[in-house]
Design a protein around this nucleic acid. Structure first.
Lengths: 345, 345
DNA sequence: TTGTAGGCGTTATCAA
DNA sequence: TTGATAACGCCTACAA
C-alpha cells in the first residue's frame, strides 16, 4: 500500500513548480512550455497520479456522469439498451451509473434522489410498473437536469424521448394472426397506465376492427405478464372449455406460460391455437414451437437515448424543442402462429 | 427551472444561521437545539435542498460508492449477482457503479481507472476472458482500495473472494452422465487461464478417472463456449461419424448449439447422445429436451461479495486475513441426459 | 510561461 | 448551542 492520494501538489512539490502549472500541464493547457508539460506528465505517471474526479467535478460543476434508471437488468430489451448506451459513452469521458428499480416506485424515487445527490449531468429513464405519477421526474427536470425517457415514458413530461412503436408492432402481429386464419384472438395485457401496454392494446383493437372482428372486454386479460399468470390464464381457458383461436400477449413471458399450459393439456399450437408474444426474449426462438414475437432493437434505442442526452447536456436546454425518436419493431414469425405452414426457416 | 443549486449557505442565509449550524442540524449532530434542527430541516425541505454528494465525498475522503466490474450484463449468473449486491447496498448509503467489459481486457483496465478516479470506496470484480494479467487490479489494491473478486478470480491476488465450486459441479454432472450409462464423454471448455474453465475441466477429468474412464486430448474441445461454436463442433462430430456418448459443456450456450445441431441431424438426445451444460441459463429449461445444467446461485454470491466488501471498507484492512467463500452449485437434471428415463418432473 | 489566490459545497476543529 | 475558519483536490482568473 503506497499512495492512496497523490495530488497535483505532491507533483508540484517534487518538481518545484506550482500546483496550477501542474494542472495546466496535465490538461494540455495551451500556453505551457513543452518541456514542463512532458516533465509533469512523466512525473505524474511515475507517481501513479490519478486525478480526483470528485474534486474536478465539484470545481467544474459537472461530473461527466450519466444516470440510467431501468426496471430490470435481466430483460433482453433493457440489457441491450444499456449495452447500446455504453457504446456511445465509452469513447467519451462519460460514465454510466445504473439503477435497477425492480418495478418499484419507491425504489425509482430513491434512485432519482441518489443520482441528483451525486450530481449526474443527466438521466436516462424507463419507468417502473409501480410508477403512476411523475412528480419525482418533473422535480429533477425543474432543477435543470436533462432527462431522456425511453420505452416506458410519461407522455405529459416535456423531455426527449426514444420510443418503440408498440401500436404498429401490435397491429402487425394481430394482422398476421388474422391472416393465418385465426379469428377469435384474445390479448394478454398489462397495467394501462404504462404506455407500452395501452399502445399494444390499441394496436390490437385497431387490427381487429380493421378486419371486421369484434373485441369484447372478456377477450382482454389485464395483468397477465408473467409466466405464472400466462399459465394460469391458459389453464382457465382450457378448463372452461372456452378456447380462443389465438392469443396475442404483450409479454413473451406470459405467452410462454400459455404455450406450456397448452402443451401439458395436449392442445396443439399452432394448429388448435396460435400464440404470439412481444419483445423477442431469447427463449422465444427455442421453445417448441418457437414463439412469434416482436424484436425491439434495444441496442439502437439505447444508443439514441445516450446521444440525445449527451447532446442536451452539452448544448444545454438552449433548444427548448424536445425530440421524440420512434423505432419500428420487427415482426418475427415463428411456428407458434404458423397455422398455414409458413414456418420460420 | 428554479434552483439547480441550493446549498447550506442559502439555507443559513435565510435563517440567519451559520452554514456549520445548518450542516450539523441536517446531519443530526448530537449537540444542537431541537428547535433549530427542526427549523433547518423543514426549511431545507421547502427549498428542495439536496446535499452535494461530490462535496461531501471530497471533504470526507469517502464517496459511498462501490464499483462493480463484470464481463456481461446479459448473463443469468451476472444479472442475478448484481441484483444480489443491490439487495445488500440499497438499505445502506452505498451506490453501485456498474461497468461492463464485454470480455475485453482494455475495457476492464479503463473501467478500473475510471472507478479509481471517481474514488469509489471499493471494487467488486469478475474478470473478462481477455484478462491474462492482473497488474491493473494489483495496482488499485496497492492504492489501498478494497477489492473483492467473485466467480472469475485471480488466484495470485490477495483479496477476499466469493467462488463457485466449479470443480465439484463438473464432477457431479460428469458422474451423473456416467451413471446414466454414457461412457465416452467429451468436454467443451474455455480459456484455461480462467479458473472457471480450468476447474470444470479438472472436475470432469477426475470424475472420469474415478470411474475408470479414459480421457484423451481429442475429447477436450477448447474455446467452444458459444452457440455457434457448439453447433460447429457437433456438426463436425456428426460428419466425421465419430460421435461420443455424451457432451458435458462448460457453457449452456455451446450445449444449446450442440443440441440444435443434433436435432437437425436427427440424432436423438438423450438416447443416442447426452448433453449437459453449465450455469442454468433460463433457456435450458425450455428447449426440447430440457438441458441438464448447474445452477450457481448468482444472487447469493452477489450478496456475499457486497457484504464482504462493505465489511472491508468499514473495518479497513485492519484484518489482513482474506476470506474465500465458496458456493456449491446445484445439479439440475433434465431430459437431455436422462437416458434411463429419470425425467425432470 | 508560470505563480498567486480564491472558491466549488461540505464537514471538522477550535473558539466563543 | 452556535459561529468562524480551514481544508478536501482541483481549476481558473488575474497578476507577474
Amino acid at each position: 500500500m503506497q499512495n492512496r492520494n497523490v495530488t497535483i501538489h505532491h507533483i508540484a512539490a517534487r518538481l518545484n513548480l506550482s500546483a496550477s502549472t501542474v494542472s495546466r500541464a496535465l490538461n494540455d493547457y495551451y500556453r505551457i512550455s513543452k518541456a514542463t508539460r512532458e516533465l509533469v506528465k512523466t512525473t505524474a505517471a511515475e507517481m501513479n497520479y490519478k486525478p480526483n474526479q470528485l474534486a474536478t467535478s465539484l470545481r467544474k460543476g459537472k461530473g461527466n456522469m450519466i444516470g440510467v434508471i431501468i426496471p430490470r437488468l435481466d430483460r433482453h430489451f433493457f440489457s441491450h439498451a444499456i449495452a447500446g448506451m455504453e457504446t456511445i459513452t465509452s469513447p467519451t469521458d462519460y460514465n454510466i451509473l445504473i439503477c435497477q428499480t425492480n418495478e418499484d416506485y419507491e425504489s425509482e424515487k430513491q434512485s432519482i434522489i441518489a443520482l441528483a445527490k451525486n450530481r449526474v449531468d443527466g438521466i436516462i429513464i424507463s419507468v417502473s410498473t409501480g410508477t403512476k405519477q411523475y412528480d419525482h421526474i418533473q422535480s429533477i427536470i425543474n432543477e435543470g437536469i436533462p432527462v431522456v425517457m425511453f420505452d416506458r415514458i410519461a407522455p405529459v413530461l416535456n423531455v426527449d424521448k426514444v420510443l418503440n412503436d408498440n401500436y404498429t408492432g401490435a397491429y402487425e402481429v394481430t394482422t398476421h394472426l388474422i391472416d393465418q386464419g385465426y379469428r377469435k384472438i384474445v390479448h394478454f395485457s398489462g397495467p394501462q397506465h404504462l404506455n407500452v401496454y395501452s399502445e399494444r392494446l390499441a394496436g390490437y383493437k385497431k387490427a381487429m376492427s380493421d378486419n371486421g372482428l369484434d373485441v369484447n372486454e372478456e377477450m382482454i386479460f389485464n395483468d397477465v405478464l408473467t409466466r405464472a399468470k400466462g399459465e394460469e390464464a391458459a389453464n382457465t381457458m382450457v378448463s372452461s372449455g372456452n378456447l380462443p383461436d389465438a392469443i396475442f400477449s404483450a409479454s413473451d413471458f406470459s405467452a410462454l406460460g400459455a404455450l406450456l399450459a397448452f402443451r401439458q393439456n395436449n392442445i396443439a399450437v399452432p394448429n388448435k391455437i396460435g400464440v404470439a408474444g412481444y419483445a423477442n426474449e431469447p427463449f422465444t426462438e427455442l421453445t417448441e414451437p418457437g414463439i412469434t414475437s416482436l424484436e425491439q432493437f434495444g441496442g439502437e434505442i439505447g444508443k439514441s437515448a445516450a446521444r440525445l442526452l449527451i447532446e442536451r447536456i452539452e448544448n444545454g436546454a438552449k433548444d427548448e424543442v424536445m425530440q421524440t425518436i420512434t423505432f419500428r419493431p420487427r415482426l418475427i414469425i415463428r411456428s407458434s402462429t404458423s397455422k398455414k405452414g409458413i414456418m420460420e426457416k
